[in-house]
Amino acid sequence: MRPCDTRWNSHYGTIVSIIVMFEAVVEVVEWIKSDRNQDNLGEATGLFKDIQTFDFVFHLFLMRLILGITNELSQALQKKDQDIVNAMALVEVCKQRLQSLRDDDFGDLLHDVEKFCEEHDIVIPNMEDLHFVPGKSRRKAPKITNFHYYRVDLYFQVLDMQLKELNDRFNEPNFILKILIVWTS
């Protein structure tokens, strides 16, 4: 199967499973890391460190939010018997929910991420501290807070890209043409 053949709902299910079974995932990666006979020891060591960071958890929860919203649309668009009017309505609902998420829900996401990190003993950065990218020069780094980085550079940027993609891909004439092509093939 090619990557483009993968259904988005399988990505959503994987993310939800990682969140629900986080402790087990960490244990498995730790077990792989501790087996010195593995060819992928460096990869497992890096993964073990990375998955236990605030940054990883933030990305995980953000993707769960976005894919949770787009999952219903994705499943509906895969149906052969989908009517155009219903599909366009689902696209609009999806765009509205993403816009609402962008406008109102950063605080809720941040709270959920912090709560998860507390439950799993993951260090939570002070949101008022300056944000530095590991491995990059601190002198040349832009002077932004962690709060700005997570809210503007990640949250807003990812949601804006998703909304742009939906607007570009599902403008009405273009979308109707794509549906007709699928139905006639």
Rank of each mutant, 00 (worst) to 15 (best):
V29T: 07
E30P: 00
E30F: 02
W31E: 15
D35V: 00
Q38S: 15
D39I: 01
D39A: 15
L41C: 08
G42Q: 14
G42S: 15
E43L: 14
A44E: 10
A44S: 15
T45D: 07
G46I: 01
G46F: 06
L47A: 15
L47E: 07
K49N: 11
D50W: 03
I51K: 09
I51A: 14
Q52F: 07
F54H: 11
V57K: 01
F58M: 07
F58Q: 07
F58D: 05
F58W: 02
H59M: 11
L60Q: 10
L60A: 06
M63V: 00
L65H: 09
I66K: 00
L67P: 03
L67K: 09
G68R: 07
G68W: 07
G68F: 10
T70G: 11
E72Y: 08
E72D: 14
L73R: 05
L73Q: 08
Q75F: 00
A76W: 00
Q78D: 13
K79S: 13
K80L: 05
D81I: 04
D81Y: 03
Q82C: 03
I84A: 12
I84T: 15
N86R: 05
N86C: 09
A87P: 05
A87W: 01
A89N: 13
A89E: 15
L90Q: 08
E92D: 13
V93L: 14
K95W: 08
Q96M: 12
Q99R: 09
Q99F: 06
L101H: 00
D105Q: 14
